[in-house]
């Protein structure tokens, strides 16, 4: 029994990041490390998906030989109704987490200049500083470009789907631009409570209301967040098609 359990854990790990993932840093994990929730979701999702496919093929083979027996119907319930629920659950669980990574944002060719600047150790844009000094520990693009609170994640995911759609169909305008002015609340969620922010020498009392209300943007003094784009101010060529993006 113990051997079976060890085999199961080993199989899940084999399916998870161990085989397919590449560690971002060479820092060894702490003692007793058994992986992240995301890695487990991926491993379990893969294990259930493979099991589902094997059972479906087996059931189809048996049903072709001797028809759909009572036992076959029960097995079909498992393969059509139970296992797919597990596959979808773990796929969502993994997909939602993984889509927040910098790698996921960089998958779209149009985002490469931003991601390259973010990772450039010599760059001094606000985004690059947050990345290299790990002011934000992970999911750097997502953390700054999603709202906080209960609906922030849902809104960001819906917008993300829109971005994917626009990228796939090529319906975006170059240079791409942010859909709405960047709200100060996203900066203040982390910095708002810090002594540095509240220091009157850095942010005088008469400026504070405007900063908190968003009348004055943090980026007015602390920007630019990203490097200026090439061809900014020019319309996309007709060869590229008329494209618009947020």
């Amino acid at each position: 029994m113990k051997r079976r359990a060890s085999f199961l854990v080993a199989a899940v790990f084999a399916f998870s990041g161990v085989l397919f993932g590449t560690p971002e840093t060479a820092i060894p994990p702490p003692h007793g490390w058994i992986g992240t929730t995301t890695e487990w979701a991926r491993g379990l999702g893969l294990a259930f998906a493979v099991l589902n496919i094997i059972l479906l093929l087996y059931l189809w083979r048996v049903a072709r030989r001797s028809g759909l027996t009572s036992m076959g119907k029960q097995l079909m319930f498992v393969t059509v109704a139970v296992l797919p629920v597990a596959v979808v659950f773990f796929s969502y669980s993994y997909g939602m987490q993984a889509s927040e990574s910098v790698e996921a944002c960089g998958e779209c060719h149009v985002m490469e200049p931003w991601v390259n600047n973010l990772r450039d150790p010599k760059a001094d844009t606000l985004a690059a500083l947050h990345y290299k000094y790990r002011y934000i520990q992970e999911n750097h693009c997502y953390t700054c470009h999603s709202d906080y609170g209960m609906f922030g994640t849902g809104k960001a995911k819906m917008e993300g789907l829109g971005h994917i759609l626009k990228n796939t169909t090529g319906h975006y305008e170059r240079p791409i631009k942010i859909a709405a002015p960047y709200p100060n609340t996203r900066c203040l969620y982390c910095h708002g409570g810090s002594l540095k922010f509240q220091d009157p020498a850095k942010h005088p009392a008469d400026v504070m209301p405007d900063l908190i209300s968003g009348k004055t943007s943090c980026l007015d003094c602390h920007g630019p967040a990203h490097p200026p784009q090439e061809g900014a101010g020019k319309k996309a060529s007709l060869a590229q098609g008329k494209r618009s993006a947020s």
Partner: peptide
């Protein structure tokens, strides 16, 4: 049978490598 098999097969790419396309 066919719909479930195809459905699971379409879930696999996301679990192998998450990209915007596999997510879609």
């Amino acid at each position: 049978f066919a719909a479930t098999l195809l459905g699971v097969i379409f879930c696999l790419p996301l679990l192998i490598k998450e990209t915007p396309y596999t997510f879609v």
